[in-house]
Write a protein that binds this DNA or RNA. Structure first.
Lengths: 349, 349
DNA sequence: GCGTCGAATTCGATCGATCAAGTCGCGAGG
DNA sequence: CCTCGCGACTTGATCGATCGAATTCGACGC
């Protein structure tokens, strides 16, 4: 087989020669077309077209200092619990970035050594030092995660998906989903369908995210003057925990519906119902949180709070561009309201 | 707020000065340490450490022509059917790339204009022209997809996840999962559990991927001398199609088990069973394909063929490195054998 | 003592773009 | 008539690394 190399892409100089102008003029034709006489502009554009020219990203990056790349860390599989949301989010982010002229660079947190706490920062550090990306999107803003403060210390540009729970004064831009509004929506939906004894199945008390979501349920119940005593349980975010806890709750408090902090927990409830011969929907209402792929396909369809990830992505990129342009950002961040995807698990007979 | 910029990262020259050597020596310390005298090497490394130096990627890219970036196209949500596999694959790819010193750059296929067929190639073209990535991983190798041949024409380096179904002589490296082996495994598993009338629920006949998977079922049945007449149905890859088709099949052929071409179809079968008051597992065995997140959590757990995506990613990156090093590659590609994730849907009472 | 060889290190040019500072031509203003 | 200003375009330097070739240095043989 002949080892024929791909043809070398044309450079600015090639275009300049063909159009009979200087390099800088071609550069201007691309970056500030208003500077050129219409006639010259047309000639240059024609040459660009003819050669199929596109600026070399490396050269541009070197000179301008901007790679037009946004770094996103993939959380390793271990941390990966109910986060089936990630895929939809990555999609949305790639799309929003593209519209702003950016690409998404994925990286991981370095090798996971058994028995050692993985170094969450290694990946960020390497990319930062080598000026590989213009900015980061940080997604794991749970309590005690050092990423945000570490990045802020280094003055690295980043935007967080998730509120800075641990530090109200951190002052970096963020975008988040209003969890309380979501569960309020879920609870009101169940109330409308005639449920009164609506249980909360959530996470441990030290999860700010979980407590935020719980608050929405609490508020909606309180607004109707309904008691919540004995109707709330807090467990780990696993299928089994949801299974066990919902079974216990059915025995002790006889709820007719469950609002859950995650789809994972909600699926656990569905397991319990299947095991007891109860029908999700007609017999017991169930609402999850995340609107994961699972919610869409599990029989009979899981009603779930749907985070507006497309909007989140757009807002994140918007905040990023402001940040990179050194425009001041809203200190308060952006809070977006989820919707409710209604399915069989809240249908009445 | 003071607009304090992040400190400028140190350059090669800074390190050289601190270590009292020339720039080139520092470069050698990084790229060919064997060239240096141990004592000099130590001095340079110390300086690198002290300054926290990492080579500027843009400069390196410009000079060497290699960005150490692998391009991966996110298929738009529309094309996204049962492909919940994507997330696991992306994870695996990021990890395998990292180990080889690469990062993954995500892009999308350009704006989806209503009424127009999206241009699958636009994204590839732009990245290729601007020399933004060293190579591509192509994932949608279904029949009639122009990506592979288009890239090959331009001599763009790429490796395919998926066999070149439409062109046996295409000659580019590829890695794929042996679908027939997977369904053979699934069928044998059901046979061992005592099933005899095992149905096939698959895709349309023009899907080579689907026919490959179907062949495995056929082979396993034939090996036991079992008839397959009337036990195979081919439908679209949707939940509803799986639901409807499995219901019809139960009525006409009374199978005791289903092997499905996808988890989506298998979940459709589960719906049918729920609707009829049949228990997945004890009453009717069901096996899916993909081992998606859904399979893991849907009650009572869906037994599913699990593609070895981590292995796939490793082989893809391996092939890519060979390709970029201009080493000859196996014309035949790499075919990997899936495993079977056994869960409740094939448990016997 | 001198030439030779190879290991270790240095020097200058270069990748392809943009920045900063020019040059050129032309028309208006003094 | 000359200058000034301004629009349109050009020129040389630069970003930070690596490539290719040149240079220094010490050891060794004769």
């Amino acid at each position: 087989m002949v080892d024929d190399q791909p043809p070398l892409p044309p450079t600015l100089a090639d275009v300049a020669e063909l159009a009979g102008v200087s390099r800088q003029t071609v550069s201007n034709a691309i970056n500030s077309p208003a500077l050129l006489r219409p006639e010259t502009l047309a000639r240059v554009q024609h040459a660009i077209e003819a050669l199929g020219y596109a600026p070399n990203r490396a050269a541009r990056h070197l000179r301008t200092g901007s790679s037009r790349l946004i770094g996103l860390r993939m959380s390793p599989a271990q941390e990966f619990t109910a986060d089936a949301t990630m895929d939809r989010f990555v999609h949305a982010l790639v799309e929003a970035s593209r519209e702003a002229g950016y690409h998404v660079l994925l990286f991981s947190g370095g090798p996971v050594v058994a028995g050692e706490r993985p170094d969450l920062l290694a990946g960020y550090d390497a990319l930062l030092r080598s000026t590989a990306v213009d900015a980061f999107i940080v997604t794991d803003t749970y309590l005690g995660n050092p990423q945000a403060s570490w990045l802020a210390e280094r003055r690295a540009p980043f935007v967080a998906f998730g509120r800075p729970w641990d530090d109200e004064t951190s002052g970096h831009p963020w975008v988040d989903v209003d969890g309380a509004a979501g569960t309020r929506l879920a609870t009101e939906h169940l109330l409308e369908r005639g449920h009164q004894r609506i249980a909360w199945l959530g996470w441990r008390e030290d999860s700010r995210l979980g407590e935020d979501r719980r608050a929405g349920w609490e508020q909606a119940m309180a607004a109707r003057g309904l008691a919540t005593d004995g109707l709330a349980v807090r467990v780990e975010d696993t299928l089994d925990a949801g299974w066990t806890a919902s079974a216990a709750l059915l025995d002790t408090a006889a709820p007719t519906a469950f609002v859950c902090a995650s789809d994972t927990l909600a699926i656990g409830v569905l397991h319990t119902l299947v095991a007891r011969g109860l029908r999700a929907g007609p017999d017991v209402g169930v609402v999850g949180f995340d609107d994961s792929q699972v919610a869409q396909v599990v029989p009979p369809g899981l009603t779930s709070v749907r985070p507006p990830l497309e909007q989140v992505a757009v807002e994140l990129v918007r905040a990023l561009r402001r940040l990179l342009a050194h425009e001041p950002h809203q200190a308060e961040g952006v809070l977006l309201t989820p919707t409710l995807a209604v399915r069989g698990s809240t249908a009445r007979g």
